[in-house]
Amino acid sequence: MVDLVIIGAGPAGITASVYAARKKMDFLVITRDIGGQAALSGDVENYTGYQFITGPELAEKFEEHMRKYKIKLKEDEEVINLEKINDEILIKTNQEDYKTKTVIIASGKRSKELGISGEKEFKNKGLTYCATCDAPLFAGKEVAVIGGGNSALDAVLQLLKIAKKIYLINNRLTLAGDLIMQEKIKQSEIVKIFNDAQIKEIFGDKMVNGIKIKKQNKEEILPVQGIFVEIGLIPNSEFIKYINKNKQGEIIVNCYNETNLPGIFAAGDVTNVPEKQIIIAAGEGAKAALGAFKYLARV
């Protein structure tokens, strides 16, 4: 049995691990990947100390910092179940079982899927969840961006210089993203915005060649070769059932990063903390590690 298990190695989990290492705690980190959503971000201009850095570069710096401490890192491992029985926390992954006295859940969020016909079939065959990665592959093509928030508008802006035509499919009555981005998009002649519209179906042969959308009971076919899904994120919190979560599935924590279960802490985007930002997740990870340290001193 270890003192602490940290689940996830994004900004929250990595910062927690740095703090835990410096407190010389007996702990391990279990994670599917390193960097989390930060590694998928484009340009970062609001992480204090870096006036400008890209998401992957910042994630790499986080990783270097963590590895400086020779921690026990279980990479490519996914937690399937977590439960607390008496004073023991039992963690089951796709590879092993672990026992720990405390845990910090910092498993972050993942892209929400559309849940429509053709989505699985055409993933990476024209359909992508990472505009930052894959936008350059759609040079001169007609594409659709699904969503209306900041990440959708950001995807449109990235595609402006690349694509031939961009259809923005937004299911709300108006766009929700920042006005400054909206203005740039509305000025472009290659962007056509469909508000109050839903994507219904994706079709193609080997690759995507069109989508069906529905706007006020009217269906329309758009001939696109690329689809960028940017409809937000959902928390990776399914592996723990008996814990307080909000309607979105985020784990509810107090300002000490404590959940309703003693010894189980949570930090970063998987929680109900207001504002999902790299710097906030990092700070939350630090608080959670210090909280776990103090908890162990008490029990």
């Binding site: 065959k125 990665c133 894959d134 350059p136 592959l137 759609f138 001169g140 690759m207």
Partner: peptide
């Protein structure tokens, strides 16, 4: 592949998909 459309096309052709 962001600098060269032909390379992007080549990648899509050899891998049968559009993800890097």
């Amino acid at each position: 592949v962001s600098k060269n459309i032909e390379l992007a096309e080549e990648m899509i052709k050899i891998s049968g998909q559009t993800g890097v």
